[in-house]
Simulated scan of single mutants.
Amino acid sequence: MIRAGVGFSNSHNPRVAAAEATASALAQAGLNRALGALCFATPAYAAAYPMILRVVGSDAHTREVAGCSSMGVIAGEHEVESGHALCVMVIGADEHRDELRAARFFVPSLRGRAQGVAAEVATAVRPALGKTNLLILLADTYNFEAEATLAALTSELPKVAITGGGASEDGSIGETFVFCGDVVSSNAVSGMLLSGDFDLTMMSSLACSPIGPAHRVTAARDNILLELDGRGAFDVFAEAAGPLATDLRRALRYVFAAIPLDPRATTIERGRFVVRNIVGASEEHGVVAVSFVPRVGDTIGFVLRDAERSRRDLKASLEEVSGKLISPPAFGLYFDCISRGAGLYGIPGHDSAYLRQSLGQVPIGGFFTGFEIGPLGDQTALLQYSGVLALISNKPVAPS
Rank of each mutant, 00 (worst) to 15 (best):
M1D: 08
A4E: 07
A4N: 07
P14D: 10
A18N: 03
G36M: 03
G57W: 02
T62H: 06
V65A: 01
S69D: 13
S82K: 09
L86T: 02
L86K: 00
C87L: 07
I91V: 13
E95A: 12
R101T: 15
R104Q: 11
R104M: 11
V107T: 14
R111K: 12
R113Q: 13
G116D: 13
V117A: 12
V121E: 02
A124G: 03
A128R: 09
L129E: 03
T132L: 08
I136E: 06
A148F: 06
T154Q: 14
S155E: 15
E156Y: 06
G164S: 00
A167K: 01
S168W: 04
D197I: 04
S204Y: 04
G212L: 11
G212P: 13
P213R: 11
A214F: 12
V217F: 03
D222R: 15
E239L: 14
A258F: 09
A258P: 04
P260F: 00
L261Q: 11
P263D: 12
V287H: 01
S291R: 13
S291P: 11
P294M: 01
R295K: 15
I300R: 06
I300C: 10
R305F: 10
E308M: 15
R309A: 14
L333N: 01
L333P: 04
G346P: 07
G360V: 05
P363Y: 03
G366C: 04
G366T: 04
G370M: 03
G370P: 03
G374I: 02
D378H: 10
Q379M: 14
G387K: 05
I392M: 07
N394C: 01
K395N: 10
